[in-house]
Write a protein that binds this DNA or RNA. Structure first.
Length: 113
DNA sequence: TACTTGACCGTAT
DNA sequence: CATACGGCCAAGT
C-alpha cells in the first residue's frame, strides 16, 4: 500500500458520520480504490486500534463484524457501535445504518433513513 | 518467482 | 434466509 492509498482510506473512514456505518468495500470505493476491500481491512489492522479513527464504523457488506463473535475485539466494536445507538440484530448491523456509500459521495452519508 | 493468507464482496444455489 | 464459490489483491514466506 502506498502512503497515498493508505491516507485516502483513513480519510474515507474518518468521513463516516457518527451513528452510521460503512462497509470495507464502500470505504475502498470512496477512497478511489474499487475492489480493494481487503486492503482496507489490512490498513485498519495496522493503523486502526489506537488513534481517533472511527474504525468500529466499518463492518462487512452484509452487516456482520469482521471478528470472531467470541473475541474481545468483537465485543469492543459491538459496544462502541451501541454507544452511538447502533444495536446489532442477529449479529448484524441493520441495513438502515449504512450510508449511501456505493453511488454517492462519502460526505453525503447519514444515519438511518 | 511461486504459493499462501486474509478486519472482503457479489452471485448463485 | 444461509452457504458455497470464485474472484479479488497486496503482503508475507
Amino acid at each position: 500500500m502506498s502512503a497515498q492509498h493508505e491516507a485516502a482510506i483513513l480519510a474515507a473512514v474518518r468521513a463516516i458520520p457518527k451513528g452510521s456505518v460503512s462497509s470495507y468495500g464502500a470505504v475502498a470505493r470512496a477512497a478511489g480504490l474499487p475492489r480493494r476491500a481487503r486492503q482496507v481491512g489490512r490498513v485498519l489492522r495496522e493503523t486502526g486500534a489506537d488513534s481517533e479513527l472511527p474504525w468500529f464504523r466499518v463492518v462487512r457488506a452484509d452487516g456482520s463484524l469482521a471478528f470472531p463473535v467470541d473475541s474481545d475485539a468483537y465485543a469492543e466494536q459491538r459496544e462502541r457501535l451501541a454507544a452511538e445507538g447502533i444495536i446489532l440484530v442477529r449479529n448484524r448491523v441493520p441495513k438502515r445504518y449504512f450510508g449511501q456509500g456505493g453511488d454517492l459521495d462519502a460526505l453525503l452519508w447519514g444515519p438511518g433513513r
